[in-house]
Structure formats: C-alpha cells, structure tokens
Amino acid sequence: MTVTANIGRSLSDDRRKMSDEAFITLLVASVAVGLFLFASLLVPNFFQLLNMLNLVTNNWAVISLGIGVSFLLVSGNFDLSVGGIVALSGVLSVWFAQATGGANALSTGLGLPYWLAITCALGGALAIGALNALFVVKFRIPSIIVTLGTMMLARGIAQVVTQGSQRNTNLPDEFGVLGNMTMFDTSVKLPVAFMLILLLIAIFIERKTVFGRLTYWIGANPIAASLSGIDKEKHVTYLYLFSSLIAGIVGILLASEFKSGYSNRGTLMEFDALVIALLGGVAIAGGFGSVVGMFFGAVILAIVTSAATGMVLSPDWQYILKAIAVFLAIVTQTWALARRNR
C-alpha cells in the first residue's frame, strides 16, 4: 500500500497541490480536533485552554520518544527499546550521582559530580542504541526482535542496579533541578521546552535536510537506496543512536523530576510511542509519515484516554480504547489513501 502511495505521489506531484503525507497529516489533525470537540460535549469542563495545553504537556515524554521512533519507522525499522532506556538512563544518573558511603547498598552511589553523572548515563543509553544498530545493521536480525531484547536488557540492568526497587536517597541538591525548572518566567517546565525544541528540530531535519529525505528513501525502497549509493547502514545506525539519546535524556529528566531512579519507569512507553506514530499516519512498512502527524497522533491518544477518565470509566478501559483507536486509524488511513490514489 505504501509503495503504491509513494509512486502515486511522485507521479502526481506536479498535478496535485498536496502530497499524500500532507493529506494524511491533515486528516489526523482534523480527527484530533473533531475528537476534542466531541469529548467536550460529553465530558464536563473538557473544553478549556488549560486542558488543551495539558493534553500536550502531560505527554512530553512519550512525544519526545515518538520522534526517534517515528524516524526509525520511516526508515523501515522498529525501536521498542526506548522504554527500557528511559529506565536505564534514569537509574544510572541516580546511581552515579549518589554520594558514596550511604547507610545501605541502595543509598550508596559513585559520588560523581552531577554533570559527569548525566553524561555517563547518556553514554549508557547510547550503548544500548549502538547495540540495536549492531544487531539490526550488521547482523541483519529483524529490528522488532532485537529491540525487544535490548528493551529487556536495559530494564534488566536498571533492575540490577536498583535491586528491583528504586534509589532515591543521598542525592545532591542539584539533582532535582533539571526536571522541575521553569523556563522564561512562565510555568513551562524544562522537559516541555525540551520536547518543543526537539519537535522543531525534527520537523526541520525531516523537511529541509538531505538526511531527512534520505530516511524516506531508505524506508520506501531499501534496495534502490543501496544501489544509488546511499550508505544505508550508517544512516540507520545514526537513527538508532539519536533515538536512544532522546530516550536517555527523557530518562534523566524524569529521574530528576521525581528525584528517584525507578527501574519500572517508562514501562509500556515504547508501545505508546509506537501507537502515537501509527495513529499519526507513520507507515510501519517505512517510507511514509511525518513528525507533525505523530504529534497529532499523540493528541488523539491523550484525548481518548483523558476523556475516558473524565467520563469516569474505569482506567482499565484505556487498553480497549487504545486498541480501537489504532485499529480505526490504520483502516481509515489505508482506505483514504487508496481512495485518493485510485
């Protein structure tokens, strides 16, 4: 389906004003707006500016992860390891920064200065990304299996470091600053600003740089990309390193926000990041999708889950709602594209 869509796009670029991608992004955005209005009718106090903002700001972590995951999906690869990396880098940053000589094993760390602790934690995150790249690019093992394995590996290391629970004592004062700092005299927190800047950079890379366009080429037709001299292996390696770097930063910010390194933090975040990318029209077969679409996918997911909570449905409903949302998104997008390119 995606291949035909791409052919259709390239053949008709001069005739049509809007690309298939812009079309799908617009579709997703209008669904998000429609859903918001619909939810406002059902849920009391839903239609408020603060609520609209919260839908985005509460999900800064998943949206940030979604950027790396979307780029990889566009290149035709999965990254399910991001949730594990969030736990790993957070736990490592705590462990490295904790002072030596605590009362017990869990309150004793390496006593590094904070800047060095987070640098080393990012190194740990990048190591997992490098492992992903090694297995996917060099060994040619399907990315879904590799990244499921590294997800468990990363979380497993985090669990060993925290002995299955969490580390939150004996931390330096500056540890809690990054995650709770507000920016520009407003109530916008640093993590949210991080997400916004990351989004802008990602949109720029995707739209305006050779690197971004190559990602689409590789995903749309890997063989043609190789034949035309694109270093596919290097490209995918960079993408895995970027994705793990983003996940590492998210992990450090979350650890700082809660002032603790918790080995189960980020559980299922990899699936949410995948889900918002799919909701936003990123094609799993590669070569199709956009960061803006992913962003609106996140908004859709946020509306669906928070509206369910607002309607006092049991929180258990979120799983079924997620399933239905992804199902409908995939079916409609396939249908809409097929109709458009008929």
Binding site: V146, M151, M152, L153, G156, G164
Partner: peptide
C-alpha cells in the same frame, strides 16, 4: 536474586 531475571532473559534473547 530475582531481580536478575529480566537481564538474563534479555541477554539470552540477544
């Protein structure tokens, strides 16, 4: 200890 399980399974998978 039990908290080594995830690590071992992940490593075994890879």
């Amino acid at each position: 200890p039990a908290y080594y399980q995830t690590l071992v399974i992940g490593a075994a998978l890879l």
